[in-house]
Lab assay of single mutants.
Amino acid sequence: MTYKLILNGKTLKGETTTEAVDAATAEKVFKQYANDNGVDGEWTYDDATKTFTVTE
């Protein structure tokens, strides 16, 4: 399945996607991606759209 991440960081905004077997796996990938890019904030997940959002 394809999962999407929306980044609403103070210095980085954008979107990315990943292929993962489940939401938990996608979340690990996205949290590492956000961490690597210096984005740390509040996370939400919408199962209907398979979209994670992180907002600083």
Rank of each mutant, 00 (worst) to 15 (best):
M1V: 14
M1W: 13
M1P: 10
M1T: 14
T2E: 11
Y3P: 01
Y3N: 01
K4V: 11
K4W: 10
L5E: 01
L5T: 00
L5M: 05
L5R: 00
L5D: 01
I6Y: 06
I6F: 06
I6R: 06
I6A: 03
I6N: 04
I6H: 05
I6M: 05
L7Q: 02
L7H: 04
L7D: 01
L7P: 01
L7G: 02
N8L: 14
N8H: 10
N8V: 13
G9V: 09
G9D: 03
G9L: 13
G9P: 03
K10G: 07
K10I: 15
K10V: 13
K10T: 10
K10A: 11
T11D: 13
T11G: 10
L12I: 15
L12A: 08
K13A: 07
K13H: 11
K13L: 07
K13Y: 11
G14R: 12
G14S: 12
G14I: 14
G14M: 13
E15I: 13
E15P: 04
E15D: 06
T16A: 11
T16P: 03
T16V: 14
T16M: 14
T17Y: 14
T17W: 12
T17C: 09
T17M: 10
T17N: 06
T18N: 03
T18C: 13
T18L: 11
T18W: 07
T18V: 15
E19G: 06
E19W: 14
E19I: 15
A20I: 02
A20D: 03
A20L: 03
V21H: 13
V21E: 13
V21G: 08
V21P: 15
V21W: 13
D22P: 01
D22S: 07
D22T: 05
D22H: 04
A23Y: 14
A23H: 11
A24E: 11
A24Q: 12
A24G: 09
A24W: 10
A24K: 11
T25P: 02
A26E: 00
A26G: 02
A26Y: 00
A26T: 00
E27P: 00
E27D: 05
E27Y: 15
E27W: 14
K28W: 09
K28L: 12
K28T: 10
K28C: 08
K28G: 08
V29Q: 08
V29D: 04
V29N: 07
V29S: 06
V29K: 08
F30D: 00
F30C: 02
F30H: 01
F30I: 01
F30S: 00
F30V: 02
K31Q: 10
Q32M: 08
Q32Y: 06
Q32W: 05
Y33R: 03
Y33V: 05
Y33M: 05
Y33C: 04
A34F: 03
A34N: 02
A34E: 01
A34M: 06
N35A: 15
N35W: 14
N35S: 15
D36N: 10
D36R: 09
D36Q: 12
N37G: 04
N37A: 15
N37S: 10
N37M: 15
G38M: 07
G38R: 07
V39T: 04
V39W: 14
V39Q: 04
V39G: 03
D40E: 13
D40H: 15
D40V: 14
D40N: 13
G41V: 02
G41Y: 03
G41Q: 02
G41W: 06
G41D: 01
G41P: 01
G41M: 03
E42L: 10
E42C: 11
E42G: 05
W43Q: 00
W43A: 01
W43F: 04
W43P: 00
T44L: 08
T44D: 10
T44P: 00
T44E: 10
T44M: 12
Y45C: 01
Y45I: 02
Y45V: 01
Y45A: 01
Y45W: 04
D46H: 07
D46F: 04
D46N: 11
D46M: 04
D47R: 07
A48L: 14
A48F: 12
T49W: 04
T49L: 08
T49K: 06
T49P: 02
K50I: 03
K50W: 06
K50E: 03
K50A: 06
K50M: 12
T51V: 06
T51K: 03
T51N: 02
F52T: 00
F52Y: 06
F52P: 00
T53I: 09
T53M: 09
T53H: 06
T53Q: 06
T53C: 08
T53V: 09
V54D: 00
V54H: 01
V54W: 03
V54A: 03
V54R: 01
T55A: 05
T55K: 06
T55G: 05
T55R: 06
T55S: 07
E56K: 04
E56T: 08
E56N: 06
